[in-house]
Design a binder for these strands. Structure first.
Length: 569
RNA sequence: CGGGACGUAGCGCAGCUUGGUAGCGCGCAUCGUUCGGGACGAUGAGGUCGCCGGUUCAAAUCCGGCCGUCCCGACCA
């Protein structure tokens, strides 16, 4: 490709509305343009990179036995109704009505649709099967952001495994785990597998592949010592035991004027340390109020609460709902003596005595509260969010918490979809059994953005060869006859050698060409100018390191081809 | 959904307080001089000032409504 003819609209300024590095750079370097909130056009450079990611994924999924399909994006709402997910997905699902008033949805994932085809599997002899596609997903995200990191229309590789039993599913899951590890490595991503919440997908277990990045929207708890890693939505840590005094025979009410927060009560004379307080939160779970109890210094992890309770509709209660329920405002709430309301408590409160909590009367608290004696806890859960520095459950070392991008997610689904949709087989004893399923997803554009998030500097993007839109650019410094002729010769030879190469034949000054090549992030630049040619040399510059080698004209192509091929993987 | 901000040329912005000819930088076009790290000069093209309505002799500017976009919190590849 000739740069003079290529549509590579680079910009001098960062777009104002971009925050994330990948967002700024992909716009500025001419890879993407926004069409509307969370919807982007991939310009030729981005499309080339995405195709390379796609190629890597196809190779690795094919290598574990994947068969590639292409499923529709338009789905009848009815299929989603059968598994109950028409409601679960809520407003995140794009819905439309066709001319015959039929309810139609746009696919946001494809468990139901793949399973519909899988009903044609009738015998255990046909198992296992591993099916996948690389296609568009639509999700009406409440808040698209950060360029390609979180969008409403995107490309996903989604695969689905079909096995006779749990052991088969485990094997398919492990095969994907290994394939994903290879995929991310080839893309130049340092992806950490972490335990994750399964959310709306359901099933028995899931692993997310997380890439550490400032622009990431997930928090990962990680132990640097033993490599324990989990999404904070799932992560656990040790809670050092606390020895309480027995306390009084019954709770004692005391006045706490103006005390509204845990911190206020810590400071208040006659108050209590945060670890000796009971925090009382009110949540509406599917329309029903529930008290949620935690230690004063422990934050609630809402995803855990949602996972444990299975609530679909889920929100903190409004102030008026709280007042009506408990007769006091947030800041003076407690669970002592409360009946007729579901009370959920975090495990760390078990057996605690002599605690302090709100009295359900504004400006009053109770001290000397013993959980078992004074509060009717209906359900005990692990619902607290782990904090950096807490001891690792496996080795006791302090855990760290960092931001990360979820680049892939693999799920053990079990029979959640096969049973309601009737994907059954006869086993070797002639018995009807539901197929065990897994599902496995990688968002292509998000991975593209994740590569940028981890491969850039002040000059622009620095693509790994495996994802770069072009592997090399031949930069022609002067368009005089001799220089141009040599450059064309090199360009032709590189193309013949199978290199994805651009020739920058624009009538621009060298600085413009250097800056554009560095902004776009092409891994190797062959610089050809009259000065070098006078000495029979060209320069080969590596974008990532900035290192420039002077190479004899006659050896330059072979030199560059060898380096690029070594990095293709 | 709750909170905050913004919408003026392809991109980045000023003008709005105090109503009266729509401006700057970059980019773009033509010509000339330049040419190993975003050149210089000359000439020029390009804007329904987000949309609808109101006030006014007159609205980018004042008022009302709507739409769009971004950012911060609750959701996911």
């Amino acid at each position: 490709m000739r740069w003079s003819q290529a549509f590579i609209p680079t910009l001098r300024d960062d777009p104002t509305d971009a925050e994330a590095a990948s967002h700024k750079l992909l716009v500025r370097a001419g890879f993407i343009r926004q069409l509307m909130a969370g919807v982007y056009t991939l310009l030729p450079l981005a499309y080339r990179s995405r195709r390379k990611i796609q190629q890597v994924i196809e190779e690795e999924i094919d290598a574990i036995g994947g068969q590639e399909f292409l499923f529709p994006s338009l789905h009848p709402a009815e299929i989603w109704r059968k598994t109950g997910r028409l409601d679960v997905m809520g407003d995140e699902m794009f819905r439309l009505v066709d001319r015959k008033a039929g309810e139609v949805v746009l696919g946001m994932t494809h468990e139901e649709i793949f399973t519909t085809i899988a009903t044609e599997i009738t015998s255990y002899k046909q198992l296992p099967q591993l099916w996948y596609q690389i296609h568009t997903k639509f999700r009406d995200e409440p808040r698209p952001k950060s360029g390609l990191l979180r969008v409403r229309e995107f490309t996903m590789k989604d695969s689905y495994s079909f096995d006779l039993d749990q052991e088969g599913l485990d094997r398919a899951f492990d095969a994907h785990y290994a394939a994903y590890t290879r995929i991310f490595a080839r893309l130049g991503l340092d992806a950490i597998p972490v335990e994750a919440s399964s959310g709306a997908m359901g099933g028995s277990g899931s692993v997310e592949f997380m890439v550490r990045a400032e622009a990431g929207e997930d928090l990962v708890a990680h132990c640097p010592n033993c490599d324990y890693a989990a999404n904070v939505e799932k992560a656990v840590s040790e809670v050092p035991p606390i020895t309480d005094e027995a306390g009084p025979a019954a709770p004692e009410k005391f006045a706490t004027p103006g005390v509204r927060t845990i911190e206020d009560l810590v400071e208040f004379p006659g108050g209590a340390a945060a670890s000796r307080q009971i925090k009382t939160l009110v949540y509406m779970l599917d329309g029903e109020p529930a008290l949620v109890l935690l230690r004063g210094d422990h934050p609630l992890q809402e995803q855990k609460l949602q996972d444990r309770t299975g609530a679909l509709d889920f929100r903190p209660a409004h102030p008026d709902e709280i007042a009506e329920l408990l007769g006091a405002d947030a800041g003076s709430l407690g669970a002592v003596g409360v009946t007729g309301v579901r009370i959920l408590a975090d495990e760390s409160l078990r057996g605690r005595t002599n605690m302090t909590t709100g009295a359900n009367e504004n400006d009053f608290h109770l001290r000397g509260v013993s959980i078992d004696r004074d509060i009717t806890v209906d359900e005990w859960f692990d619902i607290r969010e782990v904090q950096a520095g807490e001891p690792c459950v496996d080795c006791g070392e302090p855990i760290e918490i960092f931001r990360a991008i979820e680049c892939g997610h693999i799920f053990k689904l079990g029979v959640k979809y096969s049973e309601p949709l009737g994907a059954m087989v006869l086993d070797e004893h002639g018995k009807t059994r539901p197929i065990y399923m897994g599902s496995y997803g990688i968002g292509l554009e998000r991975n593209l953005a994740a590569v940028v998030e981890t491969h850039f500097d002040e000059k622009g993007i620095a693509w790994p060869v495996t994802v770069a839109p072009y592997e090399a650019v031949v930069t022609v410094l002067r368009l005089d006859e001799e220089t141009l002729e040599t450059a064309e010769e090199m360009y032709g030879q590189l193309r013949d050698a199978g290199i994805d190469v651009l020739i920058d034949d624009r009538n621009e000054r060298p600085g413009v060409k250097f800056n554009d090549a560095e902004l776009v992030g092409i891994p190797y630049r062959m610089t050809i100018g009259p000065r070098g040619l006078a000495e029979d040399i060209v320069e080969i510059n590596e974008r990532a390191t900035g290192v420039t080698d002077r190479v004899a004209v006659g050896e330059a192509v072979a030199h560059l081809v060898a380096r690029i091929e070594a990095e293709r993987r």
